[in-house]
Structures are given as C-alpha cells and as structure tokens.
C-alpha cells in the first residue's frame, strides 16, 4: 500500500514537472493520468491538487466538465454503442436498452463486477454495418437484439446482481 502510494506520488511529480511551465497544463496532466490509470483516482487528484497548488474543486470542475475524463475505474471491456444517425435509425436504441437491462447499468457506468463499461458514441465510421456495437477493438455489425446476450457472453460470465 505504501509502495503504491509512493509510485503515485512519483508519477504525478514527473507529470507535473513535464508540464510545469505550460499554460493549460491541468488538462494535459489529467490526460496523462487517465492514460496511466484508466481513470482519475481521487488520491491522484488530491496529490495533484497539492503539487500543482490548484484547489481540488477546480480539478473536479475540469474532470466533470469533459466527458472524456472518468472518475471511476473503467471496466475490463469497453462496450461502445453507436447512437449516430444511421445506427439510431437501424434500431440502436433498442440495443442500448437491451444492454442496459442485461448488465443493469446506465450509459457511462461500469458493472459491479468490473467486467463491462458501457459508453455511447456517435459514429464509428462503418455506417454500412449499422447498427454497430464495438467491444474493445472488435466491431459487431448489423446486430439484432437477440444476438446481444451471445456477444456479451464471449467476454466472460457477467454476474448479474439483483
């Protein structure tokens, strides 16, 4: 635990040093933090606040303003469901509801067992395959509602909570 904390401090220290004299460095540092941890952990935000002499409230204002930044650890697998025009017209909203129901989460959330994270995106650049679901780097096209459970089960056994 102590060791982990030390590495976080070191990590942040080096990031802050790298961006020290650059204007707008908070966003750049948050980007790097998120790349490193997959999200912005609260201890990291607190440490950043300390070394950057920036109030935590300001850091959270920036984090929560942008959709990109996450405050929760990402799921093992990221489901990107496209709600762009073509996918929407082809019934993506039905797929969204199906996934939400199966995993018991809302968009932007991660399942309690940490297996899946559900993100809604606009256009994955393959509208011909609409409606499209992307899981991690794999694209599933022309998905039907009754195929969703099968697709998800490829990624392990999700424990559904009551």
């Amino acid at each position: 635990m102590v060791e982990e904390k030390k590495s976080m401090q070191e990590e942040i220290f080096s990031l802050v040093n790298k961006w020290k004299n650059k204007e707008g460095n908070l966003i750049m540092i948050l980007h790097e933090l998120q790349n490193y941890y997959g999200y912005v952990p609260r201890p990291a935000a607190l440490e950043l606040s300390r070394v950057l002499h920036t109030p935590l409230a300001r850091i959270y204002e920036v984090i929560t303003f942008y959709n990109f930044f996450k405050l929760e650890p990402p799921g093992k697998h990221t489901i990107s469901l496209c709600l762009g025009t073509a996918c929407y017209l082809k019934g993506a909203a039905v797929l969204l509801n199906e996934i939400k129901g199966l995993l018991n989460i809302e968009e932007g959330q991660t399942t309690k067992d940490g297996l899946f994270q559900l993100d809604v995106v606009r256009c994955l650049g393959c509208c011909g395959l609409a409606p499209v679901i992307k899981i991690d780097d794999k694209i599933y096209g022309k998905v039907q509602k009754n195929q969703v459970m099968g697709i998800l089960s490829e990624y392990g056994n999700h424990k559904k909570e009551e």
Binding site: P55, L56, A57, R58, Y60, E61, T64, F65
Partner: peptide, 9 residues
C-alpha cells in the same frame, strides 16, 4: 475556501 464548485455542465 473552494468547498463549493460547479460540477458537470
């Protein structure tokens, strides 16, 4: 004091 902030948008 920076206790209060505007979160999200």
């Amino acid at each position: 004091v920076w206790a209060l902030s505007f979160l999200e948008r």
